[in-house]
């Protein structure tokens, strides 16, 4: 494959369990040059289970949360009124801070007229790296009990070397963590399964990538189950189908052993090489 790419390709889905991680890992493995794989599913990262080698030292990631100086606070309540996340309650002087609800925007410190708020670091998780052949994995892992994925996803993305091809393994769904992942992607692959649930969540994912203006195409995984409605939807909406991976018990077995399809079932290498070529070819994806 003669592609010198430094693009970032997000693998998203809407529905969980459709094969995002499978597609992300196998795409990374068939690329015959150094490639970065960013595991942005920080609530449940699992790309490392399919790679060899151990993690290097981990780096803690935090977000700035407010700390109020009672000597300077006059109890005006501006900070509380500003906070859309209700992380500061203007009850008494000084107000109460609920750090676990804080998104770290820093607005409270800016609106405080008395300079009573300073920002302190609150740890939300870690970033780790692992190298297996040409694949450099960068993984974010949220601390247990923390529900603040986007800042950690941004920290994972900040580790990216912009001169290399980068594959972003997105979280499921279409909420903030997915948007945080997609926002820095040049292109997106939406992995779906041909079932009513797959179609339902695919339509949400399509709306999301369209709103973000990212060129994208669809991969149908486990083709042979379900029905034809995903095909019909893509045809009607002018969405290119970039690859079709059949329902194959051997694929499930390979995945359950923590192996990669392109290594254990070489007959599928072509599917992933074609997919990579399509996603990296300008004009192959739905125009924005």
């Amino acid at each position: 494959m003669d592609i010198s790419a430094n693009l970032s390709i997000a693998i998203a889905s809407g529905k969980g369990g459709t094969g995002k991680t499978t597609v992300a890992l196998n795409l990374a493995r068939v690329y015959d040059a150094p490639v970065q794989l960013l595991d942005c599913d920080v609530e449940e990262p699992n790309d490392h289970l399919f790679l060899k080698g151990g993690f290097g030292p981990e780096e803690a990631v935090g977000i700035p949360v407010p700390e109020i100086d009672p000597a300077k606070c006059r109890g005006c309540g501006e900070c509380s009124r500003f906070c859309q996340y209700h992380a500061i309650a203007a009850i008494g002087t000084p107000p109460l801070v609920f750090a676990e609800l804080c998104h770290g925007c820093g607005g409270c410190a800016k609106v405080c007229q008395n300079g009573a708020i300073r920002e302190v670091d609150r740890r939300v998780g870690v970033v780790r790296t692992l190298k297996d052949g040409d694949i450099s994995l960068i993984q974010g892992c949220l601390d247990v009990g923390v529900a603040m994925a986007p800042p950690l996803i941004r920290a994972v993305q900040s580790k990216r070397n912009g001169s290399l091809l980068t594959i972003l393994d997105a979280p499921p769904g279409t909420s903030c963590p997915v948007v945080a992942t997609l926002r820095r992607a040049d292109r997106a692959i939406l992995v779906t399964e041909p079932t009513p649930f797959g179609l339902h969540d695919l339509t949400l994912a399509v709306e999301t990538v369209r709103a973000l203006g990212i060129p994208f195409g669809v991969v149908i995984n486990r083709a042979g189950i379900g029905d034809d409605r995903v095909l019909d939807f893509c045809a009607e909406s002018g969405i290119p189908i970039l690859a079709v991976i059949p329902e194959d018990r051997r694929i499930a077995e390979v995945c359950s052993r923590g192996e990669l399809i392109v290594e254990s079932l070489p007959e599928y290498r072509g599917v992933f090489r074609d997919l990579l070529e399509k996603i990296l070819t300008p004009g192959a994806l739905e125009p924005v």
Binding site: Y85, H86, A90, I91, F98, L101
Partner: peptide, 15 residues
């Protein structure tokens, strides 16, 4: 329909 902090906001109201 608050995404989060409904109880905190309600406590502010009561206060």
């Amino acid at each position: 329909n608050a995404a989060q902090g409904a109880g905190i906001q309600a406590a502010e109201t009561v206060s």
